[in-house]
Amino acid sequence: MEGKQDPASPAEALSAPYVLAYTYRRSVGPVIGRFLTGLREGRIEGVRTAAGRVLVPPAEYDPETGAAVGDFVEVGAAGVVQSWCWVSEPRAGQPLDRPFAWALVKLDGADTAMVHAVDAPSPAAMRTGMRVCVRWRAERVGSVRDIACFVPDEGSGASEAPPMPPAEPVRGMLSPVHLEFTISPGATLSRFLEGVVEGKLLGRRCPACAKVYVPPKGACPTCGVPFGDEVAVSDTGTVTSFCIVNVPFEGQTMKLPYTYGSVLLDGADIPILHLISGIPADEVRMGLRVRAEWLPAGERRPTLESIRWFAPTGEPDAAYETFSEHQ
């Protein structure tokens, strides 16, 4: 069966939300660890380089020479704004939930500037060269966020940080990353997945090498050209190889153990990966003939998960020679 629709036209491309979220467990090493420990104790420390510059926050290695840095030096909790910008619409996770300034602040006794937020009433209250001082958090954990923010210095300087009970030096930190995406699978795969919703497996033939790919790709991997004719392939095929998964992993949604295999669909020239079920795991074998078990029409979505799994057809196994080129 040849499709009529121009397969190259990106009709209605699909899209779906995707969240990349993970909380990293970082070890911080001796230099950063000492700085963060100091913050928890309400103290700001820099390091002195061989040339005598005091770096705050402390770099682990001299930015000019790459040399190891020297002694720690306590610096003031107030300093001078070297540059600033105004955030009129703060985002979640930033130090303040009302409009504020980001600033480069050179603390008293430091030769370099640190980035942090300044809680100022309006941009009119900000200027380069103004003095600001630290507003400490009461509950501190060993993080740059132990400095809640800076505030314009009214002349009294920074207030003392409320004391924290003694604790072990900081060796690590938790670092959440949360990114939101809207992912489009592209025009070719969108068209294929629309077919899946209709219970059809629509491959595409490469005009150069004549091979049928299911699912089709954005271009033929060996020829680099867009695919041509749409070709419906069968939902029966042969298991060319397989794996039985017994290991749990983060983000896993499948019940263990499960078996998945490379299934060479009849009429296709490349196998797809899918679940193999309806047979005890220890009876799955290379050459097993299987058929797609579709979800009911109303439950199908634009994903190959609309095929619940492949289950044995009961036919005799395919001879090894018939699929040995496909593994």
Partner: peptide, 14 residues
Amino acid sequence: SNLDDVEMLAPVIH
């Protein structure tokens, strides 16, 4: 673009 990377790249490389 609603195209994927390959669909955008293939004609440009060509």
